[in-house]
């Protein structure tokens, strides 16, 4: 318990210090990192708790982003309304997707989310009247309230950080709630959870909708960060990127996805500066880390910090039959 609080305090300190010490680019990198940390958290909520690997979490971010762009730019609705409607619509699409996927298992789920994601991606390309097609919708701007321009990198940082931290804390609680435990139970022993009197399908569905809503928040920030909404964030490449980050960091732990995103973005930025073969270098690093740390960076760090005397008591410890 104490250790967990300490880590959280240290992280908060870094988040506060970051905009005070770092240059504009590093702050804008942090903004992107947090947006993708939310997307990876949304992915990990399903992958880590339910064993559901989704390829459509970035699609929810995309739906949310498009809603913001369309309502904000085309219809000129005020910012709070735009964001509310975007999150509502994203949640609604998560409800619809959830109804379609709730009965499926591992590979079936992966394929269904892949298909749904690709469908929405294709739609974003082809429904030109609404989405602007390949060109997308430009000119998405945060409002200026009381002389504070929310488009300014550091102001935007404060907003993104606050919301991201709040969501991570909420998911932290969720992981420690009976509901979080139940999700884990469903992943490991679905039949038993049912026999114990738990509404398995409803729990799965709720987790899916919740994860969709988190991705929706990521989408709102994504579109304001970019200023333009185009089909590119809905592509398979982004979905796989999020999956990679979550696996690299460790999708079973709370901070794993954030860690994975931070490492991946840092890696991309650093390597891209020195060589054109950065994709190869990054691929190699990923390959090695997944071979050497199949349970992710967060797990390796956790094991290091773990005191020997303390029994395995967290919900992130190993499943039977897997190599540590």
């Amino acid at each position: 318990m104490k250790r967990e609080y300490l880590i959280i305090l240290a992280l908060l300190a870094v988040l506060v210090a970051w905009p005070l010490l770092m240059g504009n680019y590093a702050v804008s990198q942090a903004n992107r990192a947090m947006i993708y940390a939310l997307a990876a958290l949304s992915f990990s909520l399903l992958a880590g708790r339910l064993g559901w690997f989704s390829l459509c979490q970035t699609t929810f971010a995309g739906i949310s982003g498009y809603t913001v762009a369309i309502l904000g730019v085309r219809f000129g609705l005020p910012f709070p309304l735009v964001v509310t409607l975007a999150l509502l619509l994203t949640t609604l699409s998560a409800v619809i997707f959830g109804l379609l996927t709730v009965r499926s298992r591992k590979v079936g789920f992966l394929m269904l989310t892949l298909a749904l994601g690709q469908m929405v991606w294709a739609l974003s390309f082809q429904w030109v009247d609404v989405t602007g097609g390949y060109n997308g919708i430009a000119g998405v701007r945060m409002p200026v309230y009381g002389g504070i321009d929310f488009n300014a990198t550091r102001v935007f940082y404060v907003l993104v950080t606050t919301v991201t931290v709040a969501i991570f804390l909420a998911v932290w609680r969720l992981y420690r709630s009976p509901f979080g435990l139940l999700l884990l139970g469903i992943q490991e022993n679905e039949q038993r959870m049912r026999a114990l009197g738990h509404p398995v399908a409803l729990a799965r569905f709720s987790a899916f909708v919740l994860a969709g809503a988190i991705a929706g928040v990521a989408g709102v920030f994504l579109v304001y960060d970019m200023g333009i909404m185009s089909p590119s964030p809905l592509g398979l490449g982004h979905a796989v990127w999020v999956l990679t980050a979550a696996v690299l960091g460790g999708y079973r732990s709370l901070l794993g996805p954030a860690l994975g995103v931070a490492v991946l973005i840092t890696l991309e930025t650093l390597v891209a500066q020195y060589t054109d073969r950065h994709m190869m270098v990054i691929g190699l690093v990923l390959l090695l880390s997944i071979l050497l740390m199949p349970r992710g960076l967060a797990d390796v760090l956790e094991q290091r910090f773990k005191r020997k005397s303390k029994p395995q008591a967290s919900a992130t410890t190993t499943t039977q039959g897997e190599e540590p």
Binding site: G23, N24, Q29, R32, I228, S230, S232, T269, H278
Partner: peptide, 19 residues
């Protein structure tokens, strides 16, 4: 390298300007 991706492009542009 933009990688042909809108987001990467914006990121690299930001790096150019402020880094």
């Amino acid at each position: 390298d933009s990688q042909g991706d809108a987001e990467t492009t914006v990121d690299r542009l930001r790096a150019m300007e402020s880094r």
